[in-house]
Amino acid sequence: MRMLMVAAAAMLLVGCAGSAMNQARTQAPYKTLTSDKPEQVVAQCVQFSWQDEAVFGVDAGAYLQPAQKGGTTVYTRSAESFVDVQGSATGTALSYYAQHDDFVAKRRLAALATCL
């Protein structure tokens, strides 16, 4: 029973984050970047860098999920910040979105940039 409740809560979070991400994608990304590294390597690096409690404190959660149009999305709680990571034969394109243009968004962007 307890496991079922945890799974239901996780699905609810993904649903809420998904609608916020879809709405953000209707606008231009906060920043667009590219990398020569493979998509999965970049996505895992971003997830790891966003989970650094020394930098982001108790709000250091980052999650991976397959993107709707291929690729991978790395996102934070409530999708306050997320990045779509799309690989191709020539490299990897990253579209970074942030709900607010604040210190935390800039810090997450700086952490993301270390993965390029």
Rank of each mutant, 00 (worst) to 15 (best):
T90P: 00
Q99G: 06
A10D: 13
V46C: 10
L13G: 10
A8E: 14
Q44W: 00
G70I: 09
F56N: 11
L4K: 10
L64Y: 03
A17H: 06
A8W: 08
D84H: 07
W50A: 07
G87P: 03
T72C: 01
Q51H: 04
G70S: 06
T73V: 15
M5N: 02
V46K: 02
V42M: 06
L112M: 15
D84S: 09
A105S: 14
M1Q: 09
E39F: 01
A28I: 01
S95M: 08
W50T: 09
V6L: 14
H100R: 15
D52C: 02
A9S: 12
V6F: 07
R107V: 05
S49I: 00
M11I: 11
Q47V: 01
G18C: 03
D84A: 05
A28Q: 14
T34H: 03
D84E: 15
F48Y: 08
M1G: 14
M1S: 11
Q27K: 13
T90D: 15
A28L: 11
A43P: 09
M5C: 00
C115E: 07
A105Q: 09
A113T: 15
T76W: 01
T114K: 14
F56I: 13
E80F: 06
P29Y: 06
A10W: 08
K37S: 11
D52Y: 01
M21Q: 06
A60G: 14
R77K: 13
K31N: 04
A105R: 06
R2I: 12
M1K: 03
S95W: 00
V104Y: 11
M3H: 00
C115R: 06
L109P: 08
T73F: 00
Q44P: 00
A98L: 02
V41E: 15
S35F: 09
L94K: 04
L12D: 11
T73R: 02
C16Q: 11
D59C: 03
S49Y: 02
R25Q: 13
M21W: 05
D84W: 05
A98F: 08
Y97S: 08
V41D: 10
S95N: 14
R108I: 02
F48R: 15
F82K: 04
A79P: 01
R108V: 09
A17F: 01
D102G: 15
T92W: 01
L94R: 05
A67R: 02
C16K: 09
D52W: 05
Y30D: 13
W50K: 12
A28M: 13
P29I: 10
V6I: 15
Y30C: 05
A111T: 11
R107I: 01
P66V: 05
M1V: 11
S88T: 10
M21H: 03
Q99L: 09
A98P: 03
A60P: 07
L4E: 14
Q23Y: 07
Q86F: 05
A24F: 04
F48A: 15
A79Q: 04
Y30R: 08
F56S: 08
E53W: 12
M5F: 13
F56L: 11
